[in-house]
Amino acid sequence: MIRTLTGKGIWDRRKTLMWWGIGMTLYVILNVAFFPSLKEESFSELFESVPEAMLAAFGIQDIAALSTGVGYVNSQLYDGFGTILVAAWAIAIGATTLSSEEDSKTMDMLLSLPVSRTRVVLEKWLAMVVLMVGISAVIFLVLVVSNPIWELDLTLEGMVWVNLGLALLSILFGTVAMAVSAVSGRRGLAIGASGGLLALLFLLYGLGSVVDSLESIRGTSPFYWYLDSVPLAGTVSALGFLGMAFVTLLFLAIAVLGFNRRDVGV
């Protein structure tokens, strides 16, 4: 039974959530299942010929750290494509949740009901938040189960923090996408701008560790706020996490104001 806009936002994407859940579960398992065998070999030998900058761009900053569970899981998931994938889904939701209703004209029907535009934005945003927390929770659970099986030596605390951070980071990018679409009403622009920003900030964080000229501005990347303190090791940067939450709320405010100001469905 669908009673709220948030409930509808989740219900509409229940199958997508299921597929993302299955996909991420496989992705995590495929990665961590190789850990015991790779641990035996020397990672340094494996990556000998690969340039440092290339490794950095892929989230590997310290080859020696790869032989630990924390270092390995970080490079394969959180410091790498796992985070990018989840954030990309958040962007897809954020960019379309308002604009696809405008394009298909169901927005006229929705706004003919006695709801304020502020509530429409907030409820749709909340649905995105729930989905991001949901997918992060799935990854968390898969990791908790995998931990003893493939001898990852991860702490429960570390797994909690890193997945909370994952949710926060993806919500941040989803909110940026939603703000762009709320202000402009253009879905393509929302996906392009926030997707580009995601790639840019990810590279800035990765390359910043090896490219001197980027070192000084590396701290502006939300990936830095999220990952630099290595939350998977249980060392979380409270300031970094609060920073992500703060920027999210800032963009949420922009989304609310933008959607209230403009013509809808034109």
Binding site: I2, R3, K8, D12, T106, D108, M109
Partner: peptide, 22 residues
């Protein structure tokens, strides 16, 4: 609306129910 569009994946009853709650 002149350009009527209702949520395509919901049934008539689900729409009535959803609008009821809204």
């Amino acid at each position: 609306p002149g350009d009527l569009a209702l949520y395509p994946r919901m049934t008539g009853n689900q729409i009535v129910e959803f609008f009821s709650f809204m």
